[in-house]
């Protein structure tokens, strides 16, 4: 069974059909790219997957279980974690605390246990610290554990956002334009990070990206979205040479699909 199954997904905002008939699956431990021109509906698909929006058509299943009608914060319980297009860290909290917040939804100790500092509190908090440190070590960030997240350089902020998402123990990591605003070196580092995520944590990654070097470099499969519909799906090479995709990106006169929604 596929990890994530998306079936005829669609959403309508009033008169605007933002996403229509989007179907794809993501298997275990693969990196999939979601690309498309601006306004194609990529982030909307992400928001649908993470229950920010509720689809008006179709179904989303994670491990065979439908996530429809769930609340946003319950998404992580299904094993879906995301990052944002414009970095959203808890800026005035330390790097450590940012990651510990990611453990929250699996946390067990109750409010009385916290207030009266019962053994459950100490055990679990010690556990959190250890796990968070492990995670930071994996990404070579243990030296900045106590730094305020807002004071990190840009590339590390991205990394931290990924770390925080990983702290929720996802099966599928959703990255929304992780390379936005990065220079070539930082992008290269990011590619290594994403590969590390795949190999070390044995999870799948779905990423939205405009940087074609990154997409073609690490994605095993690519889904192309245009005007809220799937334009093409396949291996990077197939997609790259697909005339419709080229048309959508560069504009073409002869292809009606590229202009008519």
């Amino acid at each position: 069974m596929a990890l994530l199954e998306v079936e005829n997904l669609g959403i309508r905002f009033g008169g605007l059909q933002a996403v229509k008939d989007v179907s794809f699956t993501i298997g275990n431990n693969e990196i999939v790219g979601l690309i498309g021109p601006n306004g194609a509906g990529k982030t909307t698909v992400f928001n649908l997957l993470t229950n920010v929006y509720h689809p008006t058509e179709g179904d989303i299943r994670v491990g065979g279980v439908s996530t429809l009608g769930k609340k946003q914060h319950e998404t992580v319980d299904f094993g879906l974690a995301r990052t944002f297009q414009n970095i959203r860290l808890f800026k005035s909290m330390s790097v450590m605390e940012n990651i510990k917040t990611g453990f929250h939804h699996r946390g067990r100790y109750s409010i009385p246990a916290a207030i009266f500092r019962l053994p459950a509190y100490w055990q679990e908090e010690a556990n959190y610290t250890e796990q968070a440190m492990d995670l930071l070590k994996t990404f070579g960030m243990s030296h900045v554990a106590e730094v305020e997240a807002g004071n990190l350089p840009y590339g590390q902020q991205r990394k931290l956002e990924i770390c925080r998402a990983l702290a929720t123990h996802p099966k599928l990591l959703l990255l929304d334009e992780p390379a936005a605003g990065m220079n070539a070196t930082e992008t290269q580092e990011l590619m290594d990070t994403i590969r590390l995520v795949q190999e070390h944590f044995k999870i799948s990654v779905l990423l939205i990206e405009h940087d074609m070097n990154l997409v073609m470099g690490i994605c095993e499969r690519i889904i192309v979205l245009n005007y809220g519909k799937i334009l093409a799906k396949g291996l990077p090479n197939e997609v790259r040479n697909n005339p419709e995709v080229i048309g959508a990106y560069l504009g073409s006169e002869g292809d009606p699909n590229a202009v008519v929604s």
């Binding site: 609340k71 914060h73 992580v76």
Partner: peptide, 24 residues
């Protein structure tokens, strides 16, 4: 505690907090 951290994270960024699994 983890509960306090959840509250702080809401102050910092409610959208991210919700996405990280906090019932805001």
């Amino acid at each position: 505690s983890r509960h306090g951290r959840a509250i702080l994270s809401i102050r910092e960024d409610e959208i991210a907090s919700e996405a990280t699994g906090v019932n805001t």
